[in-house]
Write a protein that binds this DNA or RNA. Sequence first.
DNA 1: GGTGCAAGTTGCACTGAGTGCAAGAGAGCT
DNA 2: AGCTCTCTTGCACTCAGTGCAACTTGCACC
Lengths: 193, 193
Amino acid sequence: MTVRELKKRETWRLVHGTALRLMTERGFDAVSVDDIVAAAGISRRTFFNYFAGKESVVFDPDPGDPELWDRLLAERPAGEPLWISLRELLLGYTAATAERMILQRQVRAASPELAGCTREVADRFWDAIRAWAPADLSDFRLDLTVNAARTVLNTACPHWAADTGITGLHALIRAGFDTLDWTTDESRTPVRS
Amino acid sequence: MTVRELKKRETWRLVHGTALRLMTERGFDAVSVDDIVAAAGISRRTFFNYFAGKESVVFDPDPGDPELWDRLLAERPAGEPLWISLRELLLGYTAATAERMILQRQVRAASPELAGCTREVADRFWDAIRAWAPADLSDFRLDLTVNAARTVLNTACPHWAADTGITGLHALIRAGFDTLDWTTDESRTPVRS
DNA sequence: GGTGCAAGTTGCACTGAGTGCAAGAGAGCT
DNA sequence: AGCTCTCTTGCACTCAGTGCAACTTGCACC
């Protein structure tokens, strides 16, 4: 790890941390890029070297995340059903980045304007999974399965009570994976009265 | 229908149509709001009276859509499983707005910058469904089921081949609903080799 | 038919996001 | 040291989006 890379990570985390702290205090819209760079002590232009936009500072993965993904993906045993793998990957990732998840949760709580933004976890995580997943599925089936897992997380997050910690999120994720694993059992199929 | 409402619809459709036409030609980013208002013959400020932002001009529902939703929702028989209702609602909605779907498809094709934007169909359609759906489900189960249907559509759209027309999209939607209706049957559960 | 009100339109001025460019500071290599 | 490549920075610019105040027009009531 060269000095440059190290400094880059440091700066990334400094700016990221500063921005999310300000946003939990005032809300996303009420914090301008100028506010962030002033508080972080970097120039406006440098901010945009690190982040493609203001939203990216909230949702981009940590520079160390790709290694984490590789580790999590390597841990999955061969022959495991994809749906189960996806569940375990999500549980593993959210456990390893619990502080980040909670921080993002707080930013959302303080920023109703982010309501429509569904990127709960970095898009690139899903790209990595898609690249790793078995190729014997049709593209459509694969996309659908991965997107269903994504939906479980995206649905779980807004239902995640603040006082339950990361285990509260995990319970919702597990429940979501169980629910979407529909059986033909009538009792599990919601029916309109 | 008062004259004011009529004029408003006319203007909405004029601006909407103009914008989408320009965007299919040049792409989303290459069309500025000034371009749109100049071509449509309204003022810049009026554009923002009709649309909350540039993205809204692509994804907002037609002013006549709420009536359509009401009609589609009223057609669903009591006692029908929610999952089936959702499938039929999606098929009905996309059939009734086929030209719009195809137009949006073209805008996307010309605008790679919209790739991350998952609003294939108006958010308010989903809000209407959520409000209509049975209340005896837990919030989480209901959200999850509705979001799963949404995922089917959002996954189907990018896989939708341009030359197949709206029936091509319908085939994908049906396949998606069938796929997500997982059984415990091993043969339908993707397994990593 | 005129009069008053509410709704819609417009121009103007302003904030803030995001980009292209060119110059400067610093890391890394020989 | 000197050379090079990367990163940072300031500057100037475009464009999205908003608040406000003036103007126009549909509409209702007399």
